[in-house]
């Protein structure tokens, strides 16, 4: 793989990461959000794969494939089940229909997009020391990772559905993983393994809790979880 292609590949992947993040902010259809997340996972996986091909490192490609499987397939699938599922099989009389759309947003879409823009700019501003330290193709794209991280938190903070929050969290995580891949070729395997497993488990836990929220509150709107306070 020549350098231009490598650069193009990396940049495309990074661009896709950011684009999907912005689109998640835009869209309010839950299923669409999950799909966008899957796309983001694919874009994320593209980073090590491109990197691995460029440096002819089977190990890195392998990691990329694993990422692809986890972030592009498994995690979105877990979330999709949450959207698709028609009521709890055994438990409780409360049969519920999963919500398909985000409920009334905390912040309007246009304002959300404005905030996203601001966060992206901020991300570019604050990553100067990192970019300065190492001016590689990957490092140049690191602001994108930070932007995705911040947008992930933004999604979590402005969306009300349990599912949307999970999507936001996974975006945040995608951003961090992408940073790892853009800066170096990923963290050591044992760390990556632990991190990925943790993410998987967190997603499962959130899915499970989301269902309990639905069962107890009759709705997956976590904005209603405001009974615990002083």
């Amino acid at each position: 793989m020549n350098q231009d292609l490598y650069t193009a590949g990396m940049n495309t992947a990074a661009g896709t990461l950011l684009l999907t993040a912005v689109l998640v902010v835009w869209r309010r259809e839950l299923r669409a959000m999950v799909m966008l997340l899957a796309c983001q996972g694919v874009a994320l996986a593209a980073l090590p794969i491109v990197d691995g091909i460029a440096h002819a490192s089977a190990e890195v490609i392998g990691v990329g494939v694993a990422i692809l499987a986890l972030r592009g397939v498994v995690l979105p699938a877990v979330l999709l089940r949450l959207v698709a599922r028609r009521g709890p099989a055994r438990r409780g009389p409360a049969r519920w229909v999963p919500a398909r759309r985000e409920s009334a947003p905390v912040v309007g879409t246009s304002l959300s997009l404005l905030i996203t823009a601001l966060l992206t700019v901020t991300a570019f501003a604050v990553t100067r020391p990192i970019v300065r330290l190492q001016a590689t193709v990957g490092s140049m794209a690191v602001p994108v990772s930070f932007a995705v991280i911040l947008i992930g938190i933004q999604v979590m903070a402005t969306r009300r559905r349990a599912l949307s929050q999970t999507v936001g969290f996974l975006m945040l995580d995608n951003g961090i993983t992408s940073a790892a891949f853009l800066l170096t070729s990923g963290v050591p395997l044992v760390v990556e393994l632990g991190a990925s497993l943790d993410v998987l488990f967190v997603t499962l836990v959130l899915g499970l809790l989301a269902r309990q929220v639905q069962a107890h509150f009759g709705d997956s709107d976590v904005g209603r979880l405001r009974e615990l306070r002083d």
Binding site: Q165, V205, Q212, V213, F217, L228
Partner: peptide, 16 residues
């Protein structure tokens, strides 16, 4: 309800 709420917040905030 309260336990679920607490668990949700716990996981979300701690994970972030």
């Amino acid at each position: 309800r309260a336990a679920v709420e607490a668990a949700w917040k716990y996981v979300v905030i701690c994970s972030v």
